[in-house]
Each structure stands twice: as structure tokens, then as C-alpha cells.
Design a protein around this nucleic acid. Structure first.
Lengths: 207, 207
DNA sequence: GACCTTCTCACCTACGTGTTAAGC
DNA sequence: TCGCTTAACACGTAGGTGAGAAGG
């Protein structure tokens, strides 16, 4: 459940750094179906939310926490007959943007106090959207978390980069797999309107 | 409209520090009536919002911005026959808590980019409310803004403290002066429900 | 036609207002 | 009784959902 830091540089203060993904069971429920995330012009939040708990930072040092999204493979995906298959077309170029956690910069103690949540990150399929992450629809991505140490003199230094395979997803403009849709409705409070409809089949018996 | 720093210490990087209150005209409209702010158990936001624009910080240095509330005088106030008069009872002790701006700590460049807004600060009349400011009802307060320089080694240093007389108010559990109520309804978007009722006297002509 | 994208919509979450009546 | 406080309430702001129709 925990991954140890991959890029330690012999600095003793970073030796015990640990980053672990929150909501792993929920992520796995989506992952086994092949997860999908909606992208829209105005930006769409992720669900599940990408959250991680961090320990082993220097409590008094200053860090920024970032997320970016790596294109996992180099082809389009297509949903055919109930499953995702690689498409033949070559992929468009992938602009790689980064989302800086809004509480950045902050002390190590702050980041370790509670899980760090990226609930407000928005995914879009349009370029030039400030503060949002541009993704290519029908391509597969994996979120990555970066911890950057902030120096007083612009001497920023990346401490670690972590990724979690169960958070992979395909960017879509509309859900393809209705099982994924059902899970989103079941667990996302903002979709409760549709949960109520499905949970009450007796509605059909009226009149 | 601008106040210069009052506690400069000869540090050339702080020499041109300026802090100015935003929405001065709005604040003054309330101030001439004697402003009131609601306090509740769960906390109530301020309206108008305490906002300030800051310039003259070192763009690359790290600061935290704080607000606290000074009890202006040492007696209760009473609203009698349409005006506020000092009450005879001695005041209860005043626990002095501080609200740290949620974007703290941050670079000078960040604080100077836009006006710094304390829209989310909540006023309460209960003690032990984390993140909220406890005030004594029927006492008069004046908000103060503090700029604190953040050092790597816990060496925090207060750079300046600013206050603005037109932001004074009396803490209340219910509005006393109905002119103050009318101004709150007129300018606070969250009170629009009551504005509509007052702006549409034709409603009374229906049926 | 098939596939993908865009837009509007009803329906939620979440919470900020003063009002009002009840409580102390 | 009077003054002050509390809690429930209706009605807003603000914005996050997938559905479904329309567009390309």
C-alpha cells in the first residue's frame, strides 16, 4: 500500500519519505472496469478524487505539491462491443501541463497533517485553460504526484515523484462503459439525483 | 487612502511597503451608521469583506498575512431609542484570537498580485471554535492586518500592523439598527432573497 | 451512417442570508 | 417584562452531476 521514495539523494532529512494513495479500494473498483474521466471545455473534476497521505518530510521546510498526467501509451483507445481496444490512429501531440496544489507552498508539517486532496483539479480537452489540465480524449493517462522543495532563492528541487497504477483512466467526452457510469453515480454525492432514480424502481409502478 | 508602514526597521527591502483598504466607500456607508456584525455559534462571515491591497513586499520572500480584532473600548454597548450608547456593565475578558489567511504562507509576489481577501473569516460568540474568531457580543471591535515574514528556522518576524477606522463594528447576535440591515441586504449577494421583496412593492398589489 | 463532441437541462451538494418565533 | 440569544426556516448564491438532444 505504500511506495517508498524513488529519487532520494542521500539527504538524511528525506530518508523516510512515504507517499500513499487514499481511497485505494474505490479506485480499484473503477480500475478493474477500466476507468474513464470526463473532459469538457470548462473543465471537469476527477472522481474518485486523487488524494495522498504524506509522511517523512521535514516539518519546518517548505514544499509545493504538484500533479501531472502521463500519457500511458501512444495510441487512441476505442470502446467496441463492451471493451476498450487500441485504435490505429497515431496520437496527437500531448501538451504536458501541471496542476499546483492550491495550498502550495507550505510547510512539511502542513502537508503531513492530513491527506493532500486534489479535489479541485479540472480536466479539459481545450488548450490555454489557466489552472486546468489539458488531456487528449480517448487517450490513457496516469496521475503523478510531485513533491518540490521550495528554496528562498528560486532553487526549487524535486524531491520525489509517485504514481499509482490503479488511478489510470481513459479521458472521454462521454462515458462509454455504463458500469463505470453506475459506479460514478453510486459513489459521487454530486450525482445523487441519478442514484435516487435507480434506487427506486417502485417509481415505475406508480399509476 | 493609503497608510504607510508604521514599524519599519531600516530594512531597505521593506521601505516602500504600502497597505490600503479595499471597498472604502462601502465600508464608510456602514461606518456612518455604526456598523454591526452578526456573531453566531457556528460562525458568521463579515460583510463587507475585509480586503486589502499590498505592495512593497520582497517578491521572493515568504510571508503570512493575519487578521485579528482589537476591542476598541472597555464597555458594553446598548441600542436605545435608535442609537448606540455605552452600557454601564464592565466587559467580560476578551480572548484575542487570530485568523491566518488560508493562502499563508506565500511569496510576496503572490500577496501583491491581487487584493488579499478575508472573505472566509467567521465571527463567533463561542469559545474553542477552531479557525474562527471569538468576539464578545455588544462590544466594539476594529480589524487589524498583520504581515509576518516567515523564516526557515521558525524566526517569524512581524513586519507591519495596519488598522482602518472605517472598518469598526459592534458585534451583535441580531441586527439592532434596521438601516444597517437594509445596507447589508442591498449589497450582500447572499441576501438577495430579501432585496427582491423590498424592490418589488408591486407584489403587494397582486390579488 | 457511425463516432465523437457540445450544449442545455433538471437535480443535486454545500452553504451564506435575514426573518421569525421560541427560549432564557 | 425586557433584553439578548438561539434554532428552524425559506430563499438565495455557487457550482458539480449525468442525461439527452443536437451538432459536426
Amino acid at each position: 500500500n505504500e511506495l517508498s521514495a524513488g529519487k532520494e539523494k542521500g539527504d538524511p532529512t528525506e530518508r523516510r519519505l512515504r507517499v500513499s494513495l487514499e481511497d485505494q479500494e474505490l479506485w480499484s473498483k473503477f480500475d478493474v472496469l477500466t476507468n474513464e474521466m470526463i473532459v469538457t471545455k470548462n473543465g471537469r473534476r476527477m472522481f474518485p478524487v486523487f488524494r495522498a497521505s504524506i509522511s517523512g518530510l521535514d516539518p519546518e521546510a517548505m514544499y509545493s505539491i504538484l500533479v501531472d498526467f502521463v500519457q500511458v501509451d501512444s495510441h487512441r483507445w476505442k470502446y467496441v462491443n463492451g471493451e476498450w481496444v487500441p485504435g490505429g490512429k497515431p496520437e496527437p501531440p500531448a501538451p504536458n501541463s501541471v496542476y499546483i496544489h492550491p495550498e502550495s507552498p507550505n510547510f512539511g508539517a502542513h502537508w503531513m497533517k492530513d491527506a493532500v486532496s486534489f479535489s479541485k483539479v479540472k480536466l479539459t480537452n481545450k488548450t490555454n485553460c489557466a489552472g486546468m489540465i489539458m488531456l487528449n480524449s480517448l487517450h490513457k493517462y496516469e496521475p503523478r504526484l510531485h513533491i518540490v522543495k521550495v528554496g528562498s532563492k528560486e532553487e526549487h528541487k524535486t524531491i520525489t515523484t509517485h504514481s499509482f497504477p490503479q488511478t489510470r483512466f481513459i479521458a472521454v467526452t462521454a462515458y462509454q462503459n455504463e458500469e463505470v457510469t453506475s459506479l460514478k453515480i453510486k459513489y459521487n454525492p454530486f450525482a445523487k439525483a441519478f442514484l435516487d432514480a435507480k434506487e427506486r424502481p417502485d417509481m415505475r409502478d406508480r399509476d
